[in-house]
């Protein structure tokens, strides 16, 4: 699958993966276009290496509720994998009209124009089940660089399996859906789709760390964005003392409300109990589960950027796709 090419600057020979449009010479650092017909490919740098990322993970976990005091001293790194995952990026624009015929509400009829624009990220390769969580996140475009062949040797590298047409198709369907939603919320007339434009922005490789660690024999796992060190998913074992605190908290909500309810008889008792259980429900995972899941919360801001999930089964001829 690799291709031998010559650097345009220093004339050194080196290998690049097949279908890569831009190459950077490993000897002189010169970046040049290999094939002008193929789309652009970018990658994101790994800013958090394996040692830095584990340290970051431990510090993040420590900040959570009910982490045992000996967590850092008793936790061992058992393994890590760097996943470089390709995403198609597509810019999509849809235009539509909402129309009222003559005489219904307006004597002369009415036409309203609508535009919907969005940027979509579509995984270009099937994601393994343990990484499906990634489709819940959006990624920034900060620190994007032209593709360098060496990333194919860093960790697990995913080949592009779904083509450009497939990505464009998904984005087209999504933008149409969003436009129709937009029209329906502002106009009750007949909605007509005028046109859909898509622009392919290329492939972007994004790095993620999958970290495996152990606390007192319990196997745990985490997923971390390798560009900014953001903890997308992590696990820890809750301290028995913290579990006691959570149980006490739940009891101190349920019991007073049940007592107050009982004043009104049996019906009140049931209402009090139910309301108490509902109010204290956020504490239940801390009481009944040993392994707690945690993710880092970020304040985010985006302008119409959408992460599209891959449909469960992929066939080339699909037309009617339902997004959940």
């Amino acid at each position: 699958m690799s291709l031998e090419i010559k650097c345009e600057n220093c004339f050194a020979d080196f290998k690049i993966p097949h279908k890569v449009p831009v190459a950077t010479c490993p000897y002189c650092g010169y970046t040049f276009v290999v094939d002008k017909n193929i789309t652009e490919i970018y990658y994101f740098k790994v800013n958090f290496d394996s040692s830095k990322v584990f340290e970051k993970l431990l510090r993040f976990i420590l900040r959570n509720f009910g982490v045992p005091k000996d967590f850092i001293s008793n936790t061992y790194l058992t393994g890590y994998t760097l996943h470089y995952i390709p995403f198609h990026t597509v810019k999509a624009e849809a235009k539509g009209i909402c129309e009222y015929k003559e005489g219904i509400i307006f004597r002369k009829g009415y036409k309203g124009k609508f535009i919907q624009v969005l940027d979509a990220y579509i995984p270009a390769s099937p994601l393994p089940i343990n990484l499906e969580i990634l489709t819940r996140f959006k990624f920034g475009l900060r620190g994007r660089e032209y593709f360098k062949p060496r990333i194919t040797k860093m960790g697990k590298y995913y080949l592009v399996q779904y083509d450009k047409e497939y990505a464009l198709n998904l984005a087209r369907i999504k933008v149409q859906e969003e436009l129709m939603k937009d029209i329906r919320s502002a106009c009750a007339g007949r909605e007509i789709l005028e046109e859909i434009k898509t622009e392919y922005l290329g492939i972007t490789y994004y790095p993620f760390w999958e970290i495996f660690y152990q606390y007192k024999g319990e196997k745990l796992r985490a997923i971390i964005d390798a560009t900014n060190g953001r903890v997308l998913y992590s696990e820890y074992i809750i301290d028995p003392k913290a579990r006691k605190f959570a149980s006490l908290a739940a009891i101190s909500v349920i019991i007073p409300s049940t007592i107050i309810g009982s004043i009104f008889g049996f019906g009140g008792f049931v209402i009090g109990l139910l309301v108490g259980i509902l109010s204290s429900s956020p504490s239940f995972p801390k009481i009944f589960k040993k392994k707690i899941k945690a993710k880092e919360e970020f304040t985010e801001f985006d302008i119409r950027t959408i992460m599209l999930k891959l449909p469960k089964t992929y066939s080339k001829g699909f037309k009617f796709l339902i997004f959940r």
């Binding site: 940027d119 959006k138 990624f139 920034g140 475009l141 900060r142 900014n228 953001r230 970020f298 304040t299 985010e300 801001f301 985006d302 302008i303 950027t305």
Partner: peptide, 11 residues
């Protein structure tokens, strides 16, 4: 912000 997506604290 003139960014498609940004996730710094306090933007």
């Amino acid at each position: 912000p003139a960014k498609k997506y940004i996730e710094e604290l306090g933007i």
